[in-house]
Design a protein around this nucleic acid. Structure first.
Lengths: 111, 111
DNA sequence: TCGATAGTTCGGGAAATCGGAACTATTGAA
DNA sequence: TTCAATAGTTCCGATTTCCCGAACTATCGA
């Protein structure tokens, strides 16, 4: 099991961020992590909306979010704790994440 | 040749917008269309940076941007004129496009 | 040491992407 | 008109990426 890779803030690529958030499951995960006041485990997302996500897929989704620089994952005992890196990204791409989260909210509200 | 499809503003999906802009060729195209003061033809993007883009791929890229609601394409004689729909999208997802274009500029500047 | 839990990795089938070749639409000559 | 040229689109096969079940790894608590 190779160690988890987290890019430095200055290496975060816009392309990777947009790609990571262009998937409904991943935005849902990211949104919850970004708005939670405590770290979220992967397990917490075994189902998103009505869909059940197999854990291999879930693991891949977390990897994409992590390697895009959107979240930070740390092992604590048997589980993984995920926190958002919104603050750091805000420094690099001001307004980007808030605008995306807001757009997501607009869409959910209007639909 | 089926007619070009343009979604209504209220049908523009965040997911589609982010996906469309998560490709380097497409952001480059969109950025130029968004900042141009006159309509751009597809032909104008036969090469992006150093790469030469085959026209079948170019056509697909324009289709993705168009169906995501980011640009409007209109046939004028033998050529296609493309303009951005930034204004409309700003009404639906405030701040989203400016934040993405700004992030793109940041990246190009820092690299 | 064993069993349980939480994730990761592997591998094969499904879906999206790329690009060359053929096709369509429009214009401007001859 | 017909023909050639230009600008895009569509088709289709090859490559790449994505999805998810099965097997594997790591850590903890009996």
């Amino acid at each position: 099991m190779r160690p988890l890779f987290h890019p430095q803030v200055e290496d975060v690529r816009l392309e990777a961020v947009l790609h990571a958030l262009s998937d409904p499951v991943r935005v849902a995960i990211f949104k919850q992590i970004a708005s939670a006041d405590c770290a979220q485990t992967c397990q917490a997302f075994a189902s998103v909306g009505e869909r059940t996500i197999p854990k291999s897929s879930l693991s891949q989704h977390f990897k994409v979010l992590r390697e895009a620089g959107l979240i930070r994952s740390e092992r604590h005992g048997v589980e993984m704790r995920n926190v958002s890196r919104c603050g750091e990204i805000e420094g690099r791409f001001p307004g980007l994440i808030p605008a995306i989260l807001n757009a997501h909210a607009v869409e959910a509200g209007a639909a």
